[in-house]
Design a protein around this nucleic acid. Structure first.
Lengths: 341, 341
DNA sequence: ATAAAAACTTTACGCGCGTTAAAAAGTTAA
DNA sequence: TTAACTTTTTAACGCGCGTAAAGTTTTTAT
């Protein structure tokens, strides 16, 4: 099989002129069925594909879409990223996936590098509190961007995420209805803005129900939430710092650590007779089903968050990269009852 | 601040000729310190960066590196990918991360798309048994490729991975030394070639030690290993199919499911007095520390596998994309003793 | 069959930058 | 100061493809 160097050569071999071939690659339906057939026939014989760099150089609007998540080693983001990627591909775009790995510097570098990719649009889940606001602001001014998961006030053309109040109110109400109102277990200085909204929601809901909120704050920074939850739980359990027999963790990864600590300390968790503690959480992490006991949690509406994010981005791209107003779309949680509470 | 359109314009503003500026961007040390200073001064005032598409179009060798993993939602691969990405960046390359999401079709599409990126090299962890050998073969013929994690005989310029025999022999010997020899718990038709090597190693080691191997095969396909392990374990436990009081799981994700099943069935796992079963595994998955009980496992030498992979790729790139012989580098496991065995 | 419309071919320029050759300018060493 | 280098400038071409204008062929409609 001959090696084809460029479109010129391929056009000659297929017996069609180069501009028409170019038109075909831009949109196969834009040429006459007979010529399309001839091109595709040649395509099978010769295995040619346009040079992506030459193509994108001349298009002011590429088919690239950037997907940026704060921490890809977190299966939660890996799952969302998977959905986003596949939606982009289905819509004919080329997604590029990036992880900030929890570091501001890397997030900035990614956004920097993304600009030279001239993406048609970007789906960005920022680090949150540790994001460099000014860098993101500049980036959003140059590239059509949808924020998801973590909201940064006013940045990006729109935000799509989960309704943290819905998460916490459902778990708190369930635990209260079926037993004692829970304490709230969280990191002292969470990077993710959702964590702050969850704490506020917890306080709100507790007060509305006429209970006094108890918040347990554990030390630790970074993204090793299981480790942080584990250490923090051991400390609390040993100091007998729990004022209630039920605990609501800010997120599932902390809860995984919490449950591991309980197990080590011989504390039985669940709603059965012989259990002394109930633990619930938020997110419905992919592994929440396999904790011991399995984790009762408020589940993200993964499909809708991801689906609406890409829909919104496509609308944004078609609107020329600007919306008249910035919208914020929040999806409610779905309570998943398992064995831990 | 003025918007700069191209290098011509930037060169004019900085007072340096375009070819020299071009030279600078290729290698800042290749120009005289004084001119370098003038360029960098202008760079601070004007925020210009070369158009990546125009640059790569003319370079036969880009600075792109493709990283392909079979399933990114598996924290094991997410961790390796993180290391690989960061190593590439440190070496001045632009990594692009892709996940096959467990699907042959997607793996093929990724490799296809990767070719038009004209990468300097690719780090590929193939799906394994479900990979399309001929597609990968063609790809490797066109692009300098290092295989890692899963070996496919003869494909790629080199392979870097873990020594499965070392994994299994350490766990089996440890369990045998401290109690009963283990049964082996695995999927009936594992996609990953490592799984097959581990089974063989198990049989070998058991026979060498004078024990009869017991293999428990559970049904299920896909990458939801926890689910498969969980279901399979429930079945085995209910049918009392365990012939030993110790089990070695083929990998940690199966073990996570296995432990969850034991917990549900009230079976105490560990090496303490009141425990009736010991469970060990292979991989040292990031979550293995937080299972209940924490998981005794043979740990991958993450750093070395990832580090050697990129090193080898860089050597390959510098050698012009071809090695005279294909090498296979295997790193031994490190036994991590925790509570489950 | 014929006019009108649609699709294609030819020709040519432009995108932003790599790269080269020859000329000019700057630097180093004696 | 001068010869020998080294670096920069000038000028020009090429990469592979998008795209536009003008002319030609094919299709569609009457």
């Amino acid at each position: 099989m001959t090696k084809i160097k460029n479109m010129e050569e391929f056009a000659a071999l297929s017996g069609i002129s180069r501009p028409t071939v170019s038109k075909y690659f831009h949109d196969p339906d834009s040429v006459r069925p007979t010529t399309r057939a001839r091109i595709e026939e040649a395509l099978e014989r010769f295995d040619y594909r346009p040079n992506i760099y030459a193509v994108n150089q001349n298009r002011k609007l590429t088919k690239n879409i950037g997907i940026v998540v704060p921490y890809l080693a977190d299966p939660f983001f890996a799952e969302i990223a998977r959905y986003l990627e596949q939606s982009c591909i289905a819509a004919g775009y080329r997604p590029s996936l990036f992880s900030s790995h929890g570091e501001q510097k890397l997030e900035n570098e990614i956004l920097d590098g993304l600009q030279s990719l001239k993406p048609a649009g970007v789906l960005l889940a920022p680090l949150g509190r540790t994001s460099d606001r000014s860098t993101i602001e500049k980036f959003c001014a140059n590239v059509p961007t949808i924020l998801f998961d973590s909201n940064l006030d006013g940045l990006g053309a729109a935000f799509v995420g989960s309704d943290n109040f819905s998460f916490v109110s459902q778990t708190v109400e369930y635990m209260t209805r079926t037993g004692e109102p829970p304490s709230f277990f969280e990191m002292r200085t969470p990077a993710n803005p959702n964590a702050n909204k969850r704490r506020k929601a917890y306080v709100d809901v507790m007060e509305r129900l006429g209970f006094e909120p108890h918040i347990i704050k554990v030390d630790g920074t970074g993204w090793a939430f299981e480790e942080i939850g584990h250490r923090g739980a051991l400390k609390v359990l040993q100091e007998r710092g729990l004022k209630t027999d039920s605990v609501l963790c800010s997120n599932d990864r902390l809860a995984i650590g919490f449950l591991a600590a309980c197990f080590e300390q011989g504390i039985r968790v669940g709603r059965k007779e012989d259990c002394s503690l109930r633990v619930a959480s938020n997110d419905d992490h992919p592994f929440a089903k396999f904790t011991c006991p399995s984790l009762t949690t408020a589940a993200h509406d993964y499909d809708n968050v991801a689906g609406r994010s890409v829909e919104t981005l496509f609308e944004l791209i078609e609107s020329g990269g600007k919306f008249s107003t910035r919208t914020e779309t929040l999806f409610p949680a779905r309570l998943v009852l398992r064995d831990s509470a």
